[in-house]
Amino acid sequence: MSMFGLGRPQPSSAEKIAAAEQEMDLITDMFNKLQQACMKKCIPREYREGEINKAEGVCIDRCASKFFDVQMKVSELLQAEAAAKGGAAGGGFGIGGM
């Protein structure tokens, strides 16, 4: 996607807004996925009480941490693959280190 910014000297307003929006969208999407994944892993669906008990809370904390690790690992692997394939394109995913 227009690597090195050649060919398009200045991104237009619409483009800059679209980029900022896309970054927000990715963050929101990731939060939703994290939430779904960790609720599924840590919260039994019987709903016998409304509070998060201690074991569930600890599970959520570790689950979020491991989800984040997986995110980093997948990002790393995709960047390595892109670098192997496309040469200079390595790191081109580059949204906030992901």
Binding site: Q22, L26, D29, M30, Q36, F67, V70, Q71, V74, L78
Partner: peptide, 9 residues
């Protein structure tokens, strides 16, 4: 992005 987040999940 969608592919990435599905893959992670």
């Amino acid at each position: 992005m969608g592919m990435f987040s599905n893959l992670v999940t």
